[in-house]
Amino acid sequence: MTAPRFAPLAWAGIRLGWKRKLPLLLLYTLPVGWMLFFSAQIFMLYGAEQGMSEIGGPMMRAMITAKRIFKITLDVKFLISTFFLYSRLFAVLLIAWFGCGLLCEDRRAGAHVLYFSRPLTRLDYVLGRWCTVFFYGALGVIVPGMFIVGSAAWMSPDWQFVRDEGEAVWGTLAFGFLTVAFYSTLSLAVSAVASKKSFAMMAMFALVLLPHALSRILARLLGERAWRVLSPLTSLGKVGNHFLDVRQQFYQWPTWWSAASLCAIMLVCCCVIAVRIRRWEVVA
């Protein structure tokens, strides 16, 4: 079985991104930090639940006491949802950093002619690039999410977490996949339009933050929270929480509204990429 044609393109992109160590270090510090923080929380809460005062030292004893006094209950799915909430802007930065330069830099360097004169379709080219940015996004979003889930599975007695809340594993995967896929597509769309990586990054942040701000203003002015569906950040949270089966009072509109909003944005992004790559042909 031979690898698909876009695989070498994706792999080369991953290798190129790997060569620059400083951005990697800076961009992954926070996701790793959040991952350790939430995993530690799960460790402490499970430990407290099981009364493991002998292994955790004074911290664990304090946790056990706090748990008794404040009646803290352990909700791993809520913690995972919170992890995604906290790391969402960093996910945008991470994916923008790796994705925004891919198409525009190829265009600037004229590298696209090497691809289009090879036995490689335009779709192969875009898929290869998309896989590259998805990989780096997944490292910062899906892997930490799954690490937290893994911590819960490992800490729970007799794999109780997996047996009782096994759907959280799939929910985390789906939430992470949706987040990374959405931002990866968005980053490629802005990269296809922009002439420089820096412009594309600015455009990506604008496309994420301006609708967020606008949706908040509209929701406040019109007294209707459903306007928040216009924000990709909020919509991703809404759909992701649906995957994790986390109910939040704040999101008071049907999930499919958010899903439709995200699908519409992704569709527009795909159209932009297709049109721009066709345009490369016209101005070649």
Binding site: L16, A109, G110, A111, V113, L114, S117, R118, P119, L120
Partner: peptide
């Protein structure tokens, strides 16, 4: 067909 053709472009086109 493109698998049977080699193309050396005029632009630098290198990483």
């Amino acid at each position: 067909l493109l698998a049977r053709i080699g193309y050396c472009p005029t632009d630098d086109a290198l990483y």
